[in-house]
Amino acid sequence: MIYLRLFLEFFKTGLFSVGGGLATIPFLYELSAKTGWFSYEELANMMAVSESTPGPMGVNMATYVGFETAGVPGSICATIGLVTPSVIIILIIAKALHAFRSNRYVDAAFYGIRPCSLGLIAAAGAIVAKIALLNIDLFKQTGLFTDLVNIRALILAAALLVLTRAVKFTKNLHPLWFIAFSAIMGILLKY
């Protein structure tokens, strides 16, 4: 039963991802590897759409993945699954908010988890980088190291890094602008 499965997988994602939208990404890669419902490449595309549309990124991702996997009912199951653990946990905590915030063990557990979340996000980032910047398939065919790296993608990445980090005028622009710019460059450079 795919709807129940979607609900449960996203319930798990909601329960274990700490620190907002990006933290859900490693779980979605695991889901992709485990089920084959969608490819890594499709996941990267969905991330772009989720970042450039309104709403929390995690919710957008759940809706998109659910829809691609099992249509409109799938998207609803995935999204409800994602938010259910939050609602339950917060309802429990709300009764004793201050006791929770000052609890030594809670504090210690999250001291432990925060760098772990970062490590998981970085590993997910490495998968995106592999898809976006390297030509693994072409390299396997030709065996040439010059074919391994996608030069045009690398130049675009370098340009984007400069625009998002160094240039004062563009640094604080909304990510939407960079995504639109990259789409146009993708069409012009014909990847």
């Binding site: 772009a48 996000i121 980032g125 976006a132 990259s182 993708g186 450079l189």
Partner: peptide, 19 residues
């Protein structure tokens, strides 16, 4: 498809910045 190939590069940079 080309547009998305470009966009994936951007997603990669945005994640890098977030990290």
């Amino acid at each position: 498809q080309s547009a998305f190939a470009g966009i994936r590069v951007c997603v990669c940079v945005l994640i890098f910045n977030a990290i």
